[in-house]
Simulated assay, not measured.
Amino acid sequence: MLESGELDIIFTVDLFNEGIDIPSEDTLLFARPTESLVVFTQQIGRGLRKFVEKNTCVIIDFIGNYRNADIKLTLFDTQKSKNSLGKDFTPIVPAECEIHLETEVINLLEALKKKRSPRKERIFHDYLKVKNNLGRSPTYKEIHLNGSINSKEYKQAFGGYFSFLYEFQELSEQESIVYEQHYRWLNKVEKETMTKSYKKVILQFLLNKGTEEWLKPTPEEVAPYFHQFYMAKNYRKRIDFSSKNTKELWEYDQAKVVKLIAKMPMSKWVDRDELVYFENGKFGMNFSVLEIDQHILHAMTLQICNYKMQWYFERKSGGQLNS
């Protein structure tokens, strides 16, 4: 039916990978990721059959199988050896066949080869499972709650979740630009130590003000939110607001809460990186954000903050976050 022109396209799910022979098909569109070289070989093979007036087979990858391209090129290799993919990444094919790689492709393969590691691949495939289940890119907190690997591996292997997304090209073009421009800030939020949750509560207050404004509040402005955050949940109060000094603040005292905020989280945010300042009672970010980037940076920061808060209280409470 393809030969007669009655059909232009056949779209299948888990069919025609093997045991089917349609020599005339000259284009393959991949919409399914696979880790198996065997399955990939079978899929490629559907389009490699000889047919009259068929000189080429076009293969278009929509799903990211190219990420393993340096390995999958071996399916064309007739001489299997450890060095079959040398510096030029060109497999040794039969005499009547040729493979030509553009410079950009060679550069991509070089990059893939350098960063390939079993641990990173395992993390990426776990990420893909969560992404496919949700039908969209998961947030940092969703990866933590739904992934099968420990979410701390993103920080250990990549430096953080957005560093992972950037390395595996899961960010949009504009998101990648924002990541590059504000890497120091995102890295600071990701790696900020948490002996208590105070600093992240201050950041949460800022983020809750909205996408378009990075407000620069005084301790007086933060105090009601800060106090209510800990009073709202018993586990928060028990974990981070039950010392001798903070127990006295269970009954709200504006002046004392303000003093605590100024002494602890706001001053502790300040570091040699000079990304945050706290001077003369004024606290804020010491960097500017382009209007076009505000929404993206806000969303990235919020994701890290939400994840870190979830992870912190889970760890401190033994997973009991119901009260």
Rank of each mutant, 00 (worst) to 15 (best):
V39Q: 11
F164W: 02
A69P: 01
I22Q: 12
E291N: 10
S4D: 11
E173Y: 03
K233N: 07
K259S: 14
G147H: 01
K129N: 05
K308F: 00
T195R: 04
M309P: 00
G19M: 11
S137K: 13
Q43C: 13
Y225A: 12
K114N: 04
G160H: 06
V258S: 06
Y161Q: 03
N146F: 09
V258K: 13
K50Q: 15
N65A: 07
H125P: 00
I304R: 02
D70A: 08
Y225I: 12
G284Y: 12
D61R: 09
E102C: 06
E192M: 05
Y230Q: 09
E104Y: 13
N286G: 08
G86I: 04
K141R: 08
E96C: 06
V58W: 01
S24R: 12
R49D: 10
A111F: 01
L145I: 02
H144Q: 04
V270N: 07
N55S: 02
S151H: 05
L186Q: 13
C97S: 03
M300G: 06
E248P: 02
I261Q: 10
T90G: 03
Y166Q: 15
A95D: 10
E142N: 02
N133H: 13
K256D: 11
K247I: 01
R272T: 13
E142V: 03
D8Y: 07
Q42R: 10
F40A: 13
T27R: 01
Y230E: 09
I20E: 02
V105C: 11
T103C: 01
R184T: 02
S267E: 12
W214M: 14
K141W: 00
F76H: 11
E170M: 07
F168W: 15
N83I: 14
V178A: 06
H100T: 15
E220P: 02
P91Y: 13
E248C: 09
D271C: 11
T195W: 01
P91L: 14
G281W: 14
E53I: 10
G147P: 03
K196G: 12
Y230W: 08
S137M: 09
T56I: 01
A232S: 15
L186G: 13
E221L: 11
I296C: 04
F164N: 01
N107P: 00
W269L: 11
F313P: 07
K233Q: 07
F16V: 12
D126C: 09
K72M: 10
H125F: 11
A95Y: 04
K209L: 09
A69L: 15
